[in-house]
Amino acid sequence: MHGSADKDDGHSTPQADRRSKLFPRVMGSLAIFGVMVGLMIGRLTTPDPSELQKVEVTSDGLVVWFNNEPKTHGEFVDGSLALLFDASGRAQKGQLQLDDKNVNWRVLSTKEGLLLSVVAARPLQGEWSGSEVDDRWRVEIHLRER
């Protein structure tokens, strides 16, 4: 065992690797290509974020328009309506008439999304529903006094 010559494979010097050095490069390139294609497909299939387009006043409530369906959570708290939309948009406020009485509404931007609050001098009741109309999402809010 003197030296490192290949005589009878009986010593501790490792044998030269006879495999091609190209195989790891090809596999690495395929992995990078697969990740890039996956990222592109993910960007194409991700829906656009919901955005408030406009708020319309109706005779018995509001109609809120979005570019696509947002996640919605709402409840009546002490006679006022609070709706939280997982969307973006600008702050707005306004007033509507319900049985010849003023009802104030306001859209505020929060870190959770858009908060629509509807407040009146008397406690309110009502319901809301969403539907798709002309490739947009419409939330109809119908109000009445309690």
Rank of each mutant, 00 (worst) to 15 (best):
M1P: 08
M1H: 13
G3W: 03
G3A: 02
S4L: 13
A5R: 05
D6H: 04
D6F: 04
D8H: 07
D8Q: 06
D9F: 11
D9R: 07
D9C: 06
D9E: 10
G10R: 15
H11I: 07
H11K: 09
H11Q: 11
S12V: 05
S12G: 09
S12D: 10
T13A: 12
T13W: 13
A16I: 07
A16G: 00
R19Q: 13
R19F: 13
R19P: 00
S20L: 04
S20H: 08
K21P: 02
L22S: 09
L22F: 10
F23H: 06
P24H: 02
P24D: 02
P24E: 01
V26S: 03
V26H: 03
G28H: 08
S29G: 08
A31N: 01
A31F: 11
F33A: 15
F33H: 06
F33E: 07
G34R: 05
G34L: 05
M36T: 14
V37K: 07
G38Q: 03
L39Q: 10
I41K: 03
R43T: 06
T46R: 04
P47I: 04
P49N: 09
S50L: 05
S50Y: 06
E51H: 01
L52H: 04
T58I: 07
T58K: 10
S59Y: 12
S59P: 00
D60G: 05
D60I: 13
L62K: 07
L62C: 04
V63Q: 14
V64Y: 14
V64D: 13
W65Q: 13
W65Y: 14
F66W: 11
N67T: 04
N68H: 04
N68A: 03
E69H: 07
E69T: 10
P70G: 06
P70L: 05
P70K: 04
K71W: 12
K71Y: 12
H73R: 15
G74P: 05
E75F: 08
E75S: 12
E75V: 06
E75A: 13
F76L: 15
D78P: 04
G79Y: 03
S80G: 07
A82M: 15
L83V: 04
L83P: 01
R90T: 11
R90L: 09
Q92Y: 02
K93Q: 15
K93T: 08
G94I: 11
Q95A: 11
L98F: 01
D100T: 14
V103E: 00
V103T: 03
V103P: 02
R106I: 05
R106L: 09
V107Q: 12
L108D: 14
L108P: 00
T110E: 15
E112M: 09
G113A: 01
S117K: 15
S117H: 11
S117T: 15
V118C: 10
V119G: 02
A120F: 04
A121D: 11
A121G: 06
R122P: 00
P123M: 06
P123V: 06
P123R: 10
P123K: 11
L124G: 00
L124W: 03
Q125G: 09
G126M: 10
G126T: 08
G126A: 07
E127M: 10
W128N: 04
W128T: 02
G130R: 08
G130C: 05
S131W: 12
E132R: 14
V133D: 09
V133Y: 09
D134P: 01
D135F: 13
W137K: 05
W137M: 05
E140K: 14
I141P: 01
H142L: 08
R146F: 02
R146Q: 02
